[in-house]
């Protein structure tokens, strides 16, 4: 979707104003620790995947998305998913207490400390063993489709309609656009090089290129 999250090339958002690296804290408020950990831990209940999670943040109202701090957006997305999957109700969130009986421990597996640590240490690969013949090869010219899906996509707006060159193939990766609906299907993932001038015209600020990972359904031969 053409949401507020798709920020590449947008103007007017102000200076970066980075905190000096040596003085940086990992979390700036205690509630950020909670928003971070609750988001990771509830995702491990297995009711949603990473693309569902990303989409829950990006389908907020654009004003909310841009106004929120980063962990506020995580919190907003997690709350949405908890309600949509029926794990909690909006009324329970409003009142801050359980109104229906606690979840039957037989029906849901809540990971303990060892299990969450094992899960994050193991990671979860996004590539598949599917045998798929790539339609494109390194060096091929491609044009990103001019498409505007309402749902989740990982083709940034600034690449759509633009011509690039296949830099490398990453293998077959889960396709985020349908993974958002719980479907696991694989397409070849390509790293595509776009010259800065192709993307930004005469306003490109020097010699350079942007490399973007794009799935085969996003691309047409050019």
């Amino acid at each position: 979707m053409n949401g507020a999250h798709d920020l590449g090339g947008m103007h007017g958002l102000g200076p970066i104003n980075p905190e000096p690296e040596t003085e940086e804290r990992r979390f700036h408020y205690d509630w950020e620790r909670s928003a971070f950990a609750v988001t990771i831990a509830t995702a491990m209940l297995g009711r949603w995947n990473i693309d569902v999670s990303r989409h829950s943040r990006e389908r907020q109202h654009p004003i909310d998305y841009l106004k929120n701090s980063y962990y506020e957006n995580w919190f907003a997305g997690t709350k949405t998913l908890l309600v949509e999957t029926g794990l909690v109700t909006t009324e329970e969130i409003a009142q801050g207490r359980a109104l229906t009986p606690p979840t039957d421990p037989e029906s849901i597996k809540v990971p303990g400390p060892d299990e969450v640590l094992n899960a994050v240490k193991a990671g979860r690969r996004a590539d598949l063993d599917d045998v798929v013949t790539p339609a494109l090869a390194t060096g091929d010219k491609v044009r990103v489709k001019n498409f505007h899906p309402i749902g989740h996509t990982r083709a940034p707006r600034y690449t759509r309609g633009r011509v690039g060159t296949i830099e490398r193939l990453h293998g077959v990766h889960i396709f985020p656009d349908t993974h958002k609906d719980g479907v696991v299907e694989g397409y070849t993932l390509y790293c595509v090089r776009f010259d800065a001038a192709e993307l930004w015209g005469a306003d490109a600020d020097g010699p350079g290129a942007v490399f973007v990972d794009l799935w085969e359904p996003y691309l047409d031969p050019a």
Binding site: A37, L45, L82, P102, T103, I108, V110, P113, D114, L117
Partner: peptide, 16 residues
């Protein structure tokens, strides 16, 4: 609320 409903383990949150 999540702790009360048994949906997260506080020790797991601390570990993360």
């Amino acid at each position: 609320l999540l702790v009360e409903k048994g949906l997260v383990d506080p020790a797991a949150l601390d570990a993360l």
